[in-house]
Design a protein around this nucleic acid. Sequence first.
DNA 1: CGCATGATTGACAGCAGTCAAGATGTGTGG
DNA 2: CCACACATCTTGACTGCTGTCAATCATGCG
Lengths: 228, 228
Amino acid sequence: MFDDETFLKKVLLFKNLPHDQLKKILEISEKKVFRKGQTIFTEGDPADGIYVLREGKVKVFKLSLDGKEQVLHFIGEGGVFGEVAVFLGEPFPASAEAQSESTVLFIPRSSFFDLLKNDPTISMNMLALLSLRLKEFVHLIDTISLKDVSQRVSTYLLFIAEKKDNIVDLRIKKSELASFLGTIPETLSRVLTKMVKTGLIKMEGARIEITNPEELKRIAIGEKSLFL
Amino acid sequence: MFDDETFLKKVLLFKNLPHDQLKKILEISEKKVFRKGQTIFTEGDPADGIYVLREGKVKVFKLSLDGKEQVLHFIGEGGVFGEVAVFLGEPFPASAEAQSESTVLFIPRSSFFDLLKNDPTISMNMLALLSLRLKEFVHLIDTISLKDVSQRVSTYLLFIAEKKDNIVDLRIKKSELASFLGTIPETLSRVLTKMVKTGLIKMEGARIEITNPEELKRIAIGEKSLFL
DNA sequence: CGCATGATTGACAGCAGTCAAGATGTGTGG
DNA sequence: CCACACATCTTGACTGCTGTCAATCATGCG
């Protein structure tokens, strides 16, 4: 565990900031704790500030009227969320919920704008952050709109297993992965089961081992495969 | 028709800039013309700069391997595109094509960064621009993932007809609208025909009149309707 | 007029969602 | 440490929306 300043240094948004600037950020930020399952903000709430996740896990998501959920992104430690609405001066376009006991640093809107005005480094970091989000969203749109579920699952598994020796340790519930991939738990379950049966992967609970990465890659890019 | 500087003033990205700054931008920018249907850049191309649409229409889109297309956004005059990849220093994540004869101002990557460094106003404008894009993408993801095609079409028609006396003048091909809404021309056609038959809208080519906005709104938000 | 492009319609197929039941896993309190 | 309760995951049967393929119709332009 780090002290707060050491933590801030590791946050993309506050990279390359001098000591006194970091201290100032800590002064104006407010620490809040949320329990597992607790709502941090709901779509439509006025956006009063931005959030930096100090510890825990958070998901940002959209809900339809009939209760279906689409996860927009999972926030990990050091991640920032709620920033878009703050810039636009509009209500939050999505909701955020703690997936486990979570501590966040909350920076009020006006204080955050002061920071931006006085420090071009933060502006540049923010631009990089937003660009990264946009790229992720482009990828998500592409995934949901142009790929079938088998392709989505293959792509996801390969992405997570990258540089990890073909081992995927799902750190989220499968139902939430389903929601992120734009599908439902039943369908995800069926796809994974089929992959196990055809020898593409091995699965023990939340631990998945990719046993045939080449074929999985072929499925991911949409080539017809005899394995499904 | 405006002269170039008058044009730049109307571009969101260059709002509130002094005369000499605008002049500088014009100096470093390069004018390029594309014919209808011509490719401006393709997904995977190195991102060498950002584009400002001076005149014409441009679509930014993703293609899947088997040829399906998802439109990410339509760019109108004064619109900016290609900026995300420039910030990330990565290849373009999507492709851009002129939908009609188009003139663009191209600002090379390095020059653009010079501008950003020297003028905090541009940075702030850029932050607003990227935030707006993110919001649009959230909406698009929501649309594609959580709504059926009838809902998508209803929402779109109501959005476009807003403050326009319930008249929608599609300024794009229906096939491209279909691609933007995450579906195909056949399905869009069927949905529109059904709406005509149930008296929700009247349609003459690309001109659509909403004759029953209340019921259309009900469909848009997903309430069951007897009209479909 | 005739070709090209886009829009529409029809018949059909299939992927993925719904509903419901059962299996598995996890955590808590006795 | 066990047992029970609850959450999550899995499986099955079924439905239906939407995509595919193909033919026809409408429109516009040289």
